[in-house]
Design a protein around this nucleic acid. Sequence first.
DNA 1: TATTCCGTGTAAGATTTTAACATACTTTTG
DNA 2: CAAAAGTATGTTAAAATCTTACACGGAATA
Lengths: 252, 252
Amino acid sequence: MKRDRIEEIAELLDKRGKLTLEQLDDYFPHVSQMTLRRDLFQLEQEGRIIRVRGGAMSVKEVQKVSGEPYTKKTAIQMDAKIRIAQKAAHLIDENTSLFIDGGTTAMYLAKEMPDINVHVFTNGLAVAIELAQKKNIHLTILGGQVLKDNLSTASPVARSYFDNTNFELAIISAAAFTPENGFSCASQIEADLLKLTRRKAKAMYMMLDSSKIGKIMPYTFARLEDIDVLITDDNFPNDLKDKFTNRNIVVM
Amino acid sequence: MKRDRIEEIAELLDKRGKLTLEQLDDYFPHVSQMTLRRDLFQLEQEGRIIRVRGGAMSVKEVQKVSGEPYTKKTAIQMDAKIRIAQKAAHLIDENTSLFIDGGTTAMYLAKEMPDINVHVFTNGLAVAIELAQKKNIHLTILGGQVLKDNLSTASPVARSYFDNTNFELAIISAAAFTPENGFSCASQIEADLLKLTRRKAKAMYMMLDSSKIGKIMPYTFARLEDIDVLITDDNFPNDLKDKFTNRNIVVM
DNA sequence: TATTCCGTGTAAGATTTTAACATACTTTTG
DNA sequence: CAAAAGTATGTTAAAATCTTACACGGAATA
């Protein structure tokens, strides 16, 4: 009972890296904060986590890379993104080859990915770091200039990489979406890369948390009908959903 | 002034592992607690410490506990590597273009790098993440398959990147060195990359902590006389030092 | 059945952290 | 050179978080 909960907390922390007490409270609504505090205290005693103001962080996380302008961004809509990432993770089959973009949602996907034998291409540094922890995943990162605000790479040269590589599936996320303007992002080279990806991949799954809806970014890289599956959260508006399902796009 | 104090705090924390604000206050009686808090905050940003309720603890302390294959490696000879990295960091001039490899010593170099206007090429994921924190550094990462044990990329395609890029300086580290076998590393593709780097760069600085001396790894990528500067620690044997200085290689 | 122990909840009080503003000093700029 | 902008610091009040102390119920034990 108690032990189970503690183990669950430990696992959560290993995945998320860091959690506040409030977030923990959301995960365990049936126990009080005080109990969770006591659990954290115990885990600290066991040397598995470090309690910090507001919550705790996993020791593993600390051992990874540090410094956090990027991580700050990851706090936005985190819960929705995690849920989307979990859904996406279930869609990945063993012995396939896929592309994952470099956004924050993609980073959560990386964390949630099962450690199975797949080949992953990505242009995200954070995604790569996460996936590098998993023994069975073959990983290739696209080179290029590093965009500091989202820790992803972009390069016109990426094309040459793609010439000799194949992947069945691309799972990507967009910074903005409207039915009229489609899926868009902030950078031209990123958009180019994603367009190219669309052509190379047999299927494209789009991760889109509902906060992105109605926003427009400068560069459109895919239109509504270009995708095969839309993975989103519970706040996704129903009327919009119909626009997808009408075109045989699965919304989940 | 401020920086000195911050460094002193960092050193203290590395030594003690953990300090409360009160203890810090005792060490620095002439500044207010608020200032110390701000210092801790900055160190946290830099990823060197973790703030916990009541004070802070050193990241190193946490890293000692257990760990991943890569992080484990960073614990070995950490102090020597940091000192070497600090020396190397001082050698970097503004408005230059340089290559940094993906090893652990290189990661410390990345941490120590001043935030100046330079263009850096690297094949190290951890290096890239560190450098991405610095606003003024232009950063390009080489793509390729990710080697999980040292978080660096390797790819025969890297050559195509290099065709259109130029850098004056390469600062790299070796996994092993003997006077007879030169500088060697564990992976063939990595060795190829480093050889290529040697040809592209006007100068090559080698970071080598003394624990690497006498070891031999499968692939030699540079001989003793290929380098211009050797950056090492205080345990570097004097007779070996002469072999370098005799060839006008600066040892520091 | 009474007793003890364990896990848990509640709430007050203590502690720590943050935020906001004020000041002195330095650097930049016109 | 003086004004303006920026940096480092201190002070204080308010906010957030944590700890302590005590109470309760149920399971194990005597």
